[in-house]
Design a protein around this nucleic acid. Structure first.
Length: 399
DNA sequence: TGGGGTTAT
DNA sequence: ATAACCC
């Protein structure tokens, strides 16, 4: 059946261990026989194939994290600034007319008392985001992340187990409240496509020739959105697990020299190496991404990637040994591969990405690996007991 | 329009 | 390597 969503409004209380307060709210959801959503639509409980999926959407997430960090901000209109944008803001600010992704100048005009904090460094948001996900994983390991502030939790098993424990007279008293997950927005490009075809409503879509729709959008997207238009979404909740890539980016008005590019790349790289070190896994691929000026396109990004030499990979976890120099070297080669530095250039963004993460310095995948490779912990259940991979084994594998 | 992420082609 | 999608 459909994805069933419950929107949880989660607020920080301003106290020390604030995500514990969130946990209490989440715990209520998990423990209750009924799921209390913000909308009151009764859903069928008889359907044996129905699933119970909770959608947890943290409101103005960055602003909440900032208010928790500094409670003095709590009763003020607060905006989180990245470059010259207010990327999100708290409710006080919204009341006064500030909107998400509003230009800072416009926001200040609307709301001169607006307090701004810089949110370009995502570290604390990322950390809090994973704390929330780890909490949810205590209810069910099947948690899918979407961005930093949304999680889908498949509670089907848990709910079935609880229903089985109930006596039949109690069972008849159980009702499940929630609302049907109903977000249709499709995506920008697809929307444009549909408009061009004269499709402006769900009804238009459902009565449109499916053959032509498949030709225009591709069979995959066409069939998907048609099903969605009937409220049918059988897509599974896919556990996200640890991230598949780490990246850091920086945008700016102008970067036009190789020396400046190198400096910026070094900064991005330094913080990335920290993150990679703390994760414990080893990236086997690096990518450099640029955006050129004038190519006014939103997706005018170009990238070059290469695999990381194995001797550099070894050094990655160990923290100190100079991995910067060889990595900068590699990245600058990628840079010159994309940008002709003998010609004038004008960049507005640089980004470095580590991906193709592997748990250890796995060789091919031989039968011996079973004996040589320490077994990985299965998903840790509690943040308190979470197990961080160490790379102490690296020394056991010379070269 | 930021600073991230994912999957599909 | 890029495009499209999500937040």
């Amino acid at each position: 059946m459909e994805k069933l969503g419950v929107e949880l409004e989660v607020e920080g209380s301003g106290n020390e261990e604030d995500y514990e307060a969130w946990a209490m709210e989440l715990a209520d959801v998990g423990a209750a026989g009924s799921l209390q959503g913000v909308h009151d639509q009764v859903l069928p409980t008889q359907n044996s194939s129905s699933r119970v999926i909770v959608h947890v959407d943290l409101d103005c997430f960055y602003a909440q994290v900032e208010m928790i960090s500094n409670p003095e901000l709590k009763d003020k209109p607060l905006g989180v600034q990245q470059k010259y944008l207010v990327v999100t803001c708290n409710y006080e600010a919204r009341k006064l007319g500030v909107k998400k992704l509003m230009n800072v100048r416009v926001a200040k005009e609307k709301c001169p008392q607006l307090v701004l904090v810089n949110g370009e460094d995502l570290t604390r948001y990322r950390e809090m985001s994973y704390k929330v996900t780890e909490l949810l994983e205590e209810f069910s390991p099947v948690v899918e992340r979407l961005g930093f502030d949304e999680n889908f939790v498949d509670l089907t098993e848990m709910v079935e187990k609880r229903l089985q424990q109930l006596q039949s007279d109690e069972l008849s008293a159980v009702t499940v409240l929630g609302h049907v997950y109903n977000n249709q927005c499709i995506g920008c490009k697809t929307t444009k496509c549909l408009e061009a075809l004269g499709i402006n409503s769900v009804h238009d879509l459902q009565t449109f020739s499916s053959k032509i729709l498949e030709k225009e959008l591709g069979i995959s997207v066409a069939q998907r959105i048609l099903k969605l238009s009937f409220g049918e979404d059988n897509s599974p909740v896919i556990p996200s697990g640890p991230p598949q890539s780490f990246s850091e980016e920086d945008s700016f008005k102008k970067c036009s020299s190789e020396v400046e590019a190198k400096k910026r790349i070094e900064e991005l790289l330094a913080s990335l190496l920290n993150r990679v070190c703390r994760d414990g896994r080893k990236p086997h691929t690096v990518r450099l991404i640029i955006r050129r000026y004038s190519s006014g396109k939103h997706h005018g990004r170009e990238s070059r990637q290469c695999s990381i030499p194995s001797h550099v990979i070894q050094k990655l976890g160990t923290g100190n040994y100079d991995v910067m120099t060889p990595m900068v070297d590699i990245l600058m080669k990628l840079f010159r591969n994309m940008v002709n530095v003998k010609m004038p250039f004008h960049l507005t963004l640089l980004s470095v990405c580590f991906c193709n993460l592997k748990a250890l310095n796995t060789t091919k995948k031989g039968p011996m690996d079973y004996y040589l490779t320490p077994s990985l912990p299965t998903a840790s259940h509690s943040g308190k007991h979470s197990f961080k991979m160490k790379d102490t084994h690296m020394e056991d594998f010379p070269k």
